[in-house]
């Protein structure tokens, strides 16, 4: 019955609809992100300074990169940024997991708790920064006032100025702001968790730690990766916090890559050099995002949800 076709087959037309639908998005991003970045890539090879427009054409090759790579202050800021991100992301994951497990256990008032938990996510980073600048203020801050009223310490702890404490306060603010991303997504993961494997594991003789370790946690990991990916998309918003709280100071104790870029670019108006630094920070962000995104894709496959 089925005859092999000898007719010339019509070439299936290529469907241009998705290209058409995606084109506005890509056009905007090319205009706002790609083109400026190419431009700045160019300026990172020049001696461009804002105050001297003609310096845009002073080609100096890799000298900007050489300069920043030999600058110990740059490496200090770079290292601090890595430490900052690693500590913040890990703490956010751990606290987020803890909070999710905690709220998952609570039955009464759970919805309200969940809503409250989401609020920090919506705070403007600049507000978070301000809020903690106020609370950690050595003179009139809530924290020092409370310690004083309770008679603990001598009352004037310089939270934002002191060497290790300065870093601590900005990490605290960052973790305060972003833990909810993890908590929310891990909680969603817990809700989506099927009961059968849990019960099967219990029947198989696992204690509750083993159940958590071998069943719950692996199931939650894709959700953690979603959170990591979302977070890594916008890690640099920590700039806002630091800018308000300490401005990178004092004496560069809280200087991160991003505040350094702002200082060199705008305050010292060395655009070329700032752009070179900016490229390093971009590569850093891309590396973070790419890492978590591939993890997410792998985890998705494992969950059987991939196309």
């Amino acid at each position: 019955m089925s005859i092999v076709s000898v007719q010339p087959r019509r070439k299936s037309r290529r469907d241009w609809t998705p290209a058409l639908l995606l084109s506005p998005a890509f056009l905007v991003l090319i205009f706002v992100v790609l083109v400026p970045l190419l431009f700045s890539l160019y300026t990172s090879f020049t001696n461009y300074r804002l105050i001297r427009p003609d310096s845009l054409y002073e080609w100096i090759g890799l000298r900007n990169y050489q300069r920043i790579f030999t600058d110990s202050k740059f490496w200090a800021a770079f290292g601090r940024t890595i430490i900052f991100l690693t500590l913040a992301l890990n703490l956010e994951f751990i606290f987020g997991l803890g909070i999710a497990l905690l709220i998952n256990k609570i039955t009464w008032g759970q919805r309200t708790l969940r809503t409250i938990m989401m609020f920090p996510m919506m705070f403007s980073p600049i507000l978070v920064g301000y809020q903690f600048k106020f609370i950690f203020n050595d003179n009139i801050g809530l924290l020092n006032n409370a310690l004083q009223s309770l008679g603990i310490g001598d009352g004037a702890i310089a939270w934002l100025v002191d060497k290790p404490l300065g870093m601590f306060t900005i990490i605290f603010a960052e973790v305060w702001m972003s833990t909810s991303v993890f908590a929310i997504l891990l909680l969603a993961g817990l809700f989506a968790m099927p009961r059968d494997p849990l019960e099967a594991a219990k029947v198989d003789g696992c204690n509750s730690w083993q159940v958590f370790r071998h069943i719950t946690l692996p199931f939650l990991m894709p959700f953690a990766f979603i959170a990591m990916t979302i977070r890594s998309l916008d890690v640099a918003r920590a700039y806002d916090i630091v800018d308000v709280m300490t401005g990178g100071g004092p004496a560069n104790r809280t200087e991160l890559l991003w505040t350094m870029i702002a200082r060199v670019g705008y305050d010292n108006s060395r655009m070329g050099q700032a752009n070179a630094m900016a490229y390093v920070s971009i590569l850093l962000s891309i590396a973070f995002t790419y890492y978590f995104f591939t993890k997410l894709i792998a985890a998705r496959k494992y969950m059987g949800g991939a196309e």
């Binding site: 998309l233 916008d234 900016a278």
Partner: peptide
């Protein structure tokens, strides 16, 4: 992922 401050320069 491009940091806002890095993007602001170009």
């Amino acid at each position: 992922t491009v940091p806002g401050i890095a993007l602001s320069l170009p």
